[in-house]
Each structure stands twice: as structure tokens, then as C-alpha cells.
Write a protein that binds this DNA or RNA. Structure first.
Length: 118
DNA sequence: AGCTTGACTTTGA
DNA sequence: GTCAAAGCCAAGC
């Protein structure tokens, strides 16, 4: 079973996303699809992005650790200073070039694989 | 009430 | 490998 309180998918989708993103280890990144899939719908990856848009009210949300499945900083433009996203990633040891994370599959953190291991 | 946009993903050609 | 189209659910107009 899930070790995280994200069972309530019918509950606040945003809260579930925030909770998971908050659990992302430092120096690691994940994709919207991974989060969406963890919540039950990989197709609703857009909702994850939408939820992140509301994450600005929650300063504890490391949204910079969330990128698209391409490892591209798709949401960096939504940061206060767009470059802050890359700065934060590099501050955690993540190499980023041209808005793209290097060694993405290496630092990729899959919640469904790390948390839901049975 | 309906239509458009959006921090995406997947599948098909 | 790339390009185009469909699907997804919610918020905004």
C-alpha cells in the first residue's frame, strides 16, 4: 500500500501533488507524468502542472525539481526569475544546460518506484 | 451555460 | 530520429 498520504485522489489533487513534490530528495528531479501516474492518472499530467502553478502559495514546494519527461525546464518561465529554477537545480548538484537537465535519467526520482516499492 | 488555454504525455506516421 | 494529432482535467473568460 502507499506509505504516503496520497490515497485520497478524490481529495485535493493539488495537496497530493504538493505532498509528493515535497518528498522529492535533494539533488533529484521528477516529471509531471510520474507524479500524475503516482496519483493514478498519467494523462492528467497537465493538472500536475496546473497544481504547480498554485504551488507559489506554498513556498515549501521545490517546483524546480519538477520538470517535463524530457528533462526540460518547461516551467522555468513561470518562476519569479526564470533563471532561478536552473540556479536552484545547480545548487543541488544538478547540471543544467540550455534549460535541459543533464544526466536526467540518473537523477530522475520516480515516486512510483521509490515510494510504492513492495 | 460554453469555449479557450495550460509548468504534459502518449501514440501514430 | 523528428513531426503532428489526440487525450486529459481544471481554471479562466
Amino acid at each position: 500500500m502507499s506509505t504516503r498520504p496520497v490515497s485520497q485522489k478524490n481529495a485535493d489533487f493539488f495537496q497530493s501533488v504538493f505532498d509528493l513534490v515535497r518528498c522529492i530528495p535533494k539533488g533529484r528531479v521528477t516529471s509531471y507524468g510520474a507524479i500524475a501516474k503516482y496519483l493514478g492518472s498519467a494523462r492528467s499530467s497537465r493538472m500536475v502542472g496546473w497544481a504547480m502553478n498554485a504551488s507559489h502559495v506554498h513556498l515549501d514546494i521545490p517546483a524546480h525539481r519538477v520538470v517535463n519527461r524530457n528533462g526540460l525546464l518547461s516551467g522555468k518561465m513561470h518562476f519569479s526569475p526564470p533563471e532561478s529554477m536552473q540556479t536552484r537545480l545547480e545548487a543541488e548538484g544538478i547540471r543544467v544546460e540550455k534549460d535541459q537537465i543533464l544526466d536526467f535519467p540518473k537523477i530522475f526520482w520516480d515516486p512510483n518506484a521509490e515510494l510504492s516499492i513492495d
